[in-house]
Design a protein around this nucleic acid. Sequence first.
RNA 1: GCGGAAGUGGCGGAAUUGGUAGACGCGCUAGCCUCAGGAGUUAGUGGUUAACAGCCAUGAGGGUUCAAGUCCCUCCUUCCGCACCA
Length: 859
Amino acid sequence: MGEVNTHDREKAQYRPQEIEPKWQGRWEEARAHRAPDVPAGQKMYVLEMYPYPSGNLHMGHVRCYVIGDLLARYWRMRGKVVMHPMGWDSFGLPAENAAIKEGIPPQIRTPQNISNVKRQMKALGLSYDWDREVATHTPKYYRWNQWLFLKMHERGLVYRRLSNVNWCPSCATVLANEQVIDGACWRCESTVTTKSVHEWALKITAYAEELLADLDRLTGWPERVVQMQRNWIGKSLGCEMDFLVAGPEECAECSRPAGAGLKSTEEPSRIRVFTTRADTVFGATYVVLAPEHPLVPSLIREDRRGEVEAFVERMRRTDKIARTAVDTEKEGVFTGAYAINPFTRKRIPIWLANFVLADYGTGAVMSVPAHDQRDFEFAKKYGIPIKVVIQPPAGDRLDAGTLAAAFVEDGVMADSAEFNGLTSGKGREAMAAYLEKRGGGRPTVNWHLRDWGVSRQRYWGTPIPMIHCEKCGIVPVPERDLPVRLPEGVRLTGTGEAPLARVPEFANTACPACGGPAHRETETMDTFVDSSWYFARYLSPDDETRIFDRAAADAWLPVDVYVGGPEHAVLHLLYFRFFTKVMRDIGIVGVPEPVTRLVTQGIVYKDGFKMSKSKGNVVSPDEIVAGYGADTARLFSLFASPPEKDMEWSETGVEGSARFLGRVWHFALRFAGERGAADGDGVSPGLEELPPAGQGLLRKTHKTIRKVTLDIEKETQFNTAVAAMMELLNAANDFGWKGAEGDAAARRLGRFVVRTMLLLLSPFVPHLCDEMWERMGFAGAASASAWPAWDEEAVRDDVLTIVIQVNGKLRSQIQVAAGTPEDDVKKAALADERARKFTAGADPKKVIYVAGKLVNIVV
RNA sequence: GCGGAAGUGGCGGAAUUGGUAGACGCGCUAGCCUCAGGAGUUAGUGGUUAACAGCCAUGAGGGUUCAAGUCCCUCCUUCCGCACCA
């Protein structure tokens, strides 16, 4: 207040570019964000998904990390001991591809990228404990990947399997599903085929039941993520049933010579199918196998060999995804062989078809065209008989001849011998019981979830710690020999298989069991392995003797809040849960689930499109920090939208946030510089000390404390918390300070409002708050202070506004003192002139009073 | 097809257990201050209207209720995930 000379005006400007580095330096010096190995008080573990260090953060990262940082800072102020670490998902394909393209080895490029991203994070004022930083590409980290792999191997959770993968014949490499675009290789555009390769797999299906059941515990997770995991795990209850293959004697009944084309030595005896509709088995008029089914070669009749083999070959060469897409036409081929329906004892043909999946169930299905739409269409196309065996509980009886579509619902069993009359549900139970007693089948559970193939024919990943010995077979690397280091200086071409296979000094080794010549596994691990347990490594990032300290794990786990993108809803977050359960069974953690509360943040858009290089609408954090400051970037990220929703990045919106901070700054300055002020400085004045206008502002301040606290804690609605603080500033600016100059009570109120505002804003815009806190002359730092508490007395209004409705429509408002009895409020409402205009003198039929809110007069 | 989320001003978004629809911000309009301004500041801003009077407004249509953005029913649209799982 008063005259301001040029020098002071200069000093009074809000210059984020000056104050932000200053405070970042101070926090670092004070090691303000360090977390103890074992917390003394109540702990709070706030975690954000670590990034792949591509070299630059994008706004999606910024949003994620700002949300996490807000929570970390808030809980620190609430007195919790906070763990808030950050690290790098630094292995992976992009670094390898960049190395191929630019010739810069990933060992060189990765640290450069990390250091730039780290700089960007620091410039945003993110409060990480950098002493706990981990980087997955370092032997210090990945040796524990290898250790876990060995532990899982010991427990029978690691095995080698033959798997069909996407294969580009031109690049001679395995492709991930997302690298196959419309059936063609993403790089060279040649047609992708499938190939059987050996790979290492982790037996996640051993935990399927628990992963499914424990979803019920995840009450702090978004429902959609839980639902996606439930679908992904996909538990399906049904039956396996054996269909005998018709032998030569049965073939005497058919038109072909008995046993034609079947070599008796190879004669298969039975085909096992999986079905969830055992109640329809009497309607099974054919059996279909996946083209890759192992029995196929022995089933083919000689006279059909050409056609069938051509079909199998064509399927093998078609991209898996395209072949099994829902809009792909169903096609199949008759093998010439027949099976016996175990219930009707009838001969039914055996077909192969593109839509039957080799790796689900048994790779074979019984087809019931009357009661399954796919089977129906297939039967119509190839002229296979249709038999109705389920009748709807009510309405017309179905007839196979007139059926226009399959009847897929449950009903009542018909034409099913002794099972006639049973409902579908009862029928399924009866069939299961029958099969179990008589043999030839059993109730079975099938899962959509498959085991996790972790082999990658890549260089930039964790070497799989296994050794192939001619004499001993597969031998795990002994624990004492870990880590198996990734060799440097490997020439990367991107066109071959497993780069490590071409490094003899790596691949050639001695067998740990017999000492004879052997060679190492040259594949590397999927990087999802790295990210499945990193949350625990933060607890003991430098431990050379064990993966992490059990005491620290017991103290800190589970993670209380985990923030990240919803694109990881199934893969990462499922593996994360899987590894936690494995680690529990190994005995290194005590919790069954890694994360209590999951926050999935929405996507950042700009101009209606997702921010991306190809759209050219990327805004870089550096640009925003340089132009407006980190605090503005943080505030806007939190204000534009609630965390879970998508947000639109808008330049004018950013300016609005900057404007607000400028106004906070200038408002605070009016009360600055009272160093060494009297006791009770910045403390809430009592209501009785203030005139009515002051009481209003005081109430508003306390209400804002309550609103912001509850928004952060209960709702994670940071946008409304910001709105509440904007309201407070508006109210504070509107207050008649000018007239109150020299009034001690008013000045006290002003300093209290400023102090409160700085505390409430501190987790949002920490630099501004600490700087202004210092200029105000308050002790310590805002970011290191206790979160303010609201006074229940002061948030209670003494005058209430009561809305008056007539027949439900808003007509008037009156003011009443708090605590006015219901009858008096009603009387006042009925007496209100504006309301009376609408009651037109009629007697009210009913008067409804909602305490402290409204009166509705019904006439 | 199955599963999930969501439809509110010109825009982003607010609205405890049903109880003043549109908080807060952006944009826009006008005034002030400026040589000027993409700066600052004051006021206004859902539609209709001469109107601070009324009336109409939360994707559409019904219903329950004194009272519905909120609850129930029937549709429509958008986004996301899975996708021939037998």
